[in-house]
Nucleic acid binder design. Structure first.
Length: 130
RNA sequence: AUGGCUGUUCGUCCCAUCGCUCUUUGAAAUACAGGGGAGGAAAGUCCGGACACCACAGAGUGCCAUGCUUCCUAACAGGAAGGUUCAUACUUGUAUGAAACAGAUAGUGCCACAGAAAAUAUACCGCCAUGCUCCGGUGUGGUAAGGGUGAAAACGUGAGGUAAGAGCUCACGUCGGUCUGAGGUGACUCAGGCGGAGGUAAACCUCAUGGGGUGCAAGACCAAAUAUACCGGCUAUUGGGUUACUCGCUCAGGCCGGGGGGUAGGUUGCUACAAUUGAAUGGCGACAUUCAAUGCAGAUAAAUGAUGGGAAUAGCGCUUGCGUUAUACAGAAUCCGGCUUACAGAACAGCCUUUUUU
RNA sequence: CGCCCGUUCGUCUAGUUGGCCUAGGACGCCAGGUUUUCAUCCUGGAAAUCAGGGGUUCGAAUCCCCUACGGGUGA
């Protein structure tokens, strides 16, 4: 399975779900990215995500947009291992990526961090620690 | 040539791979294919409109905004062309720049400190006349030229006049008011007459003009989802009470509608018009009219991108054609017209400084 | 996206009908005194270009305009 697309159905657009993630979910940190995640029963989509950059750290809308785009690209290219793991277990996961750094970092660095987070999540999931 | 200022225009480009969003054909749907996809400021939300809903007899008062004139415009606190005043420059009547630039002669208030006095004028030192005198002064009256104070001192200069003085009179000026004549669409200008002179309206205010309120989270429709205070209607067919019974009345229930509470999506509004580009005509100009061509974002936890390679421009380094670094300000959210603010660099036009050559 | 409000010593604030305000008070800070010492207490001092810039005025924290930052609110 080599699906690099990220249509709207794989993004979170529901306010109730978002507040659930931030209130009930657990966190995985790898500076400068903070991932809140919440595990659920399988409902057709293995993964749903959202990306956020706080306005507190970046006043300019352009800088926020750039970081969100970079994070989305990094996730889009590396999401498949976690997706297969979840699909095999018949569960789905909602993840919220929040950028907590105060300076813009390069794409390569961001990609490494996001891969690390996704690897940790899939490992934990295979062991059943979530 | 170099540097600076002002104005106008532009404000990185190409290819590959992987994606996002809208739309068209086809289609149950996905997938595939074709097409479109940020700006000059999209920003600030400072003005003005369109559009929508709510409110609304008429008039007045109040509140807010604007404030030289004419024009442009859908409208404006915007723009164009002019007028006036002020500042600067010199060629001394021109150029450049600036102006919340209606009214202080409608009325009220304020003008700290200093100063005699801050606006009905007044009198500390003075000046003049005169009374008294111990000849040092002092009382009374007149006066406001000079001194000192202040941001500002009753219009400025000169002459006449006078006991001393004073727009008291005259000449030349400054300012604004009013009347007459001339020019101009008008602000205003010129000439003459009359009467006049502190400032402050970004103090209250007066005059003129304009303004109903709320904003696309406006509003419309569809689907879902239900506790029900309360109100109205229906109840052939439900039950209780009243009654001997029927009708009637009444209470409860049911249904419908309203009202009010709470949950939470979708569609629409939504992108084709004060539209953009080009030409012609009219106008000093802002701009208008006509003709032709074009179709040019529409997201909603919110798309318009990421990576790699190449080009262009700029800086740095030296091997002088290679390496390396950087590519401004900044991201639509109902839509337009302005204003304000941010902005690497490039091009064009005008003006100024310095240097070189003829 | 729309609408509204605020910004004054290190902190919390007063003053916002223009002049007494180059700005008052409390807490905190510094120095001295009191005490065997510390605290309390007493005395004195420093600390603000009133968010930034421009304008009106003789004179601005105050009036007007622009900018920056912070906050509130609207189904």
């Amino acid at each position: 399975m080599s699906n690099f697309s990220l249509p709207k159905s794989e993004r979170i657009c529901d306010q109730v779900l978002i507040s659930e993630i931030f209130e009930l979910g657990n966190t995985v940190k790898d500076f400068p990215v903070f991932a809140h995640y919440l595990l659920k029963d399988f409902n057709g989509k293995p993964l749903q995500v959202l990306f956020s950059v706080p306005k507190r750290n970046f006043k300019s809308a352009i800088k926020r947009n750039v970081l969100k785009r970079k994070m989305r690209e990094a996730y889009r290219l590396n999401k498949n291992t976690l997706a297969t793991v979840l699909k095999n277990k018949k569960q789905s996961m909602n993840i919220a990526f929040v950028y907590t750094g105060k300076e813009i970092c390069t794409f390569e660095k961001l990609e490494k961090k996001i891969i690390a987070i996704l690897d940790r999540l899939s490992e934990m999931h295979e062991k059943g620690l979530c």
